[in-house]
Amino acid sequence: MRIKVLTVRASLYASLTTLAILTLFPLLWVTSIAFMRSPEQSAGTPPLWPRHPTLNNIVNIVQREMLGHYFLNSLIVAIATTVLSTFVAGLAGYALAQVQFRGRRVISWVVLFAVLIPSQALVLPLFEMFREVHLINHYAALILPAAANPVSIVLIQAYMRGIPAEILDAARMDGAGEWRTFFSVVVPMMAPMLAALAVLTFVVSWNDFMWPMIAMQKASMQTLPVALASIDREHYQEIGLMAAGATVTILPMMAIFVASQRYYLRSVVAGSLTD
């Protein structure tokens, strides 16, 4: 019995380790290339490890290609999108799950159907719309379309359904208005879910490529992934420079995931743990 458990556990760890290596290897290699000198990185297949590590590539890409500027663009867009989208999804999901009003069902269905629309299909109408209101080349062009994310709304709605309505009734009886109820009672109760959504939203916004490429036509307004792609076109032989750009792009994601890992995991398993 004991041996069987151990065998199962060993094979589980073995397969997880393999999976981790497969996932992490390219990432580590790219990071490693970012620290290599020119002869190494441009030699057919670059080695796994830099013989003489250097910061030249990083310094070059930040100085020569104004990477800091694009980094800032990405940061502004991602933070604004995350804050706005989490707030809207929190309010909408709560209202659709717990507040009684006419048309609630219809709206719920509309939101659910909106999940099915691929974002590529929205590019053209969005572009027309934002050109009409002269917001192309503005941060708003990237932030506003992401502010109401149907997936987040549906997730929050499902989570909110699990919260007993009596608690909200109690808050009403206690004399708390709608906003106080929302901020002092509802938000703390769905905090894990909101935190997980915030992380996901940030990552999606940070990595978004197609719409930012189309909506930000002025070079100075480009986000990091778009800028990185144009660097690729200009310096297609300088692998080190590209790797440095990719490393700088990935860094904030890594930091966020490591910092929020515990919260994030908690909400993923929240359904099975609520008492």
Binding site: E166, I167, D169
Partner: peptide, 11 residues
């Protein structure tokens, strides 16, 4: 009003 499941604020 006192509710059936107490309805205390869990946080």
């Amino acid at each position: 009003m006192v509710f059936q499941n107490h309805a205390l604020y869990p946080h």
